[in-house]
């Protein structure tokens, strides 16, 4: 019973994560300019990767020998080390994803990449950003 429930949950997480990856890529195809595309690119980076890695973590599961050899707490495949590595991978992706996105967007802004659609409503004081090129 608990196993089939876990299996269903892993299914949902894996397929949902893959769906978010595809939606993000489709968004990058459809959105009109660079800055809006970065919004679509965060979808695979956050929930896409998050759901897939969470699903794999549930699948690899835990194996904690709480009560000695015979009576350990065992979930899924019981591969604790792989689960820890997946958790590290997820935390690392969530920590570095925004950093690299920000570095890229800041570089684009400094180089004066502009909106190619109707200009968005600009509330900031330095809206008259000079085009360096």
């Amino acid at each position: 019973m608990i196993d089939s429930l876990l299996h269903a949950l892993v299914w949902i997480l894996l397929v949902g994560g893959a769906a978010f990856c595809v939606i993000g890529a489709v968004g990058m195809l459809r959105l009109p300019d660079f800055y809006t595309r970065t919004h679509a690119a965060t979808l695979p980076d956050t929930l896409g990767a998050g759901m897939i890695l969470l699903g794999l973590m549930l699948q690899s599961g835990l194996n904690l020998p709480l009560l000695g050899e015979g009576a350990s707490l065992r979930i899924g495949d019981g591969n604790t080390l792989v689960t820890l590595k997946l958790l590290t991978l997820l935390l690392f992706l969530l920590a570095t994803g925004p950093a690299s996105t920000h570095a890229l967007v800041k570089a684009a802004y400094a180089r004066g990449i502009r909106w190619n659609q109707a200009s968005p409503q600009d509330d900031s004081s330095d809206s008259k950003h000079a085009d360096p090129d």
């Binding site: 978010f20 939606i23 679509a40 965060t42 968005p120």
Partner: peptide, 18 residues
């Protein structure tokens, strides 16, 4: 954001705030 992307009309209104 997923709903906005999948919407055929693509209802975005980008803006810059401080």
């Amino acid at each position: 954001v997923a709903r906005i992307i999948l919407d055929p009309k693509l209802p975005i209104s980008p803006r810059l705030i401080r």
